[in-house]
């Protein structure tokens, strides 16, 4: 089937790493099938439990290494919410912490060679972004009622411009989940695909040293991207949360 296109486009198979396949056997992928998605999400949960539950088991006054890492993440996310969403955003700390930790650990675990990056799938990031979008919109209407629509009515602009601005604001509001999910999924997918392409070059003896060096450099960059994307996802969630809590500009 792929025969005619085999010569040109499928040389490197850079996207094969994203295929969802069953762990046992080779049946079709149903909704409850144990797949590599299940495996790597379970490992994500395990890693989070190891760091945040087992690591803080001692409740030590002078923290161990794992405990101080957990405390650092806690303080970091707490301060981020407080700075951006305000004091009343602290109530939603566990939700944002869940999102942040899941994305962070999934991204980092996805960087292990031969692993499966769950956050590179638009289905996963789309659900995350939609959850944030729907949650924030519902919260905005519950907290502020109809005055939540003031978010789209830029009262500081001249009156003539306001309807046009309202349309732009409305569109940008509904584009939020799209960009929110594609930013994360696209970044992770792009990084992994680029590494795979360079790995394909490594098979050619003449340029394999350059290729290996390039993979090393890109791997370093990807570690940075993995952390920054988790941070960006969380910080944008905080910004949206702020809009829901204080819709006035």
């Amino acid at each position: 089937m792929a025969e005619p296109s085999a010569e040109g486009e499928l040389v490197f198979h850079p996207l094969d790493q994203f295929i969802v396949e069953p762990l046992f056997g080779d049946g079709p992928v149903r909704w409850f099938t144990l797949t590599n998605v299940t495996l790597w999400m379970a490992l994500t949960v395990l890693a989070i439990i190891l760091l945040l539950v087992v690591g803080t088991r001692g409740r030590a006054m002078i923290p161990s290494r794992a405990q101080s890492a957990a405390e650092m993440i806690y303080g970091f996310v707490y301060k981020m919410i407080e700075d951006i969403s305000g004091k009343d955003g602290i109530r939603y700390f566990p939700y944002i912490m869940t999102l942040f930790l899941f994305i962070l650990f999934a991204n980092v675990l996805g960087l292990i060679p031969t692993s499966f990056a769950t956050t590179s799938h638009i289905a996963v990031t789309g659900v995350l972004a939609l959850a944030v979008f729907i949650g924030v919109t519902v919260l905005g209407f519950v907290k502020n009622g109809a005055s939540f629509l003031g978010l789209f009515w830029v009262s500081s602009a001249p009156l003539v411009l306001r309807p046009a601005l309202a349309i732009i604001e409305l569109i940008s509001y509904f584009v939020r989940p799209v960009s929110h999910s594609i930013r994360l999924g696209g970044n992770i997918m792009a990084g992994h695909a680029v590494m795979k392409v360079f790995a394909g070059f490594a098979a050619i003896a003449a340029i394999s040293p350059i290729s290996v060096l390039a993979i090393t450099a890109i791997y370093g960059l990807e570690v940075l991207v993995a952390v920054i994307q988790a941070y960006v996802f969380a910080i944008l969630t905080c910004v949206y949360l702020k809009d829901a809590l204080h819709p006035a500009h």
Binding site: V29, F32, T35, V37, M41, V45, I48, P94, M97, A123
Partner: peptide
């Protein structure tokens, strides 16, 4: 065809993380 699978396991994962946290 893989979407239901991913979304199902994602929701389970998020719920577990949320409750643990």
């Amino acid at each position: 065809s893989t979407y239901p699978n991913q979304i199902f396991w994602l929701i389970i994962t998020l719920l577990v993380i949320y409750f643990v946290l």
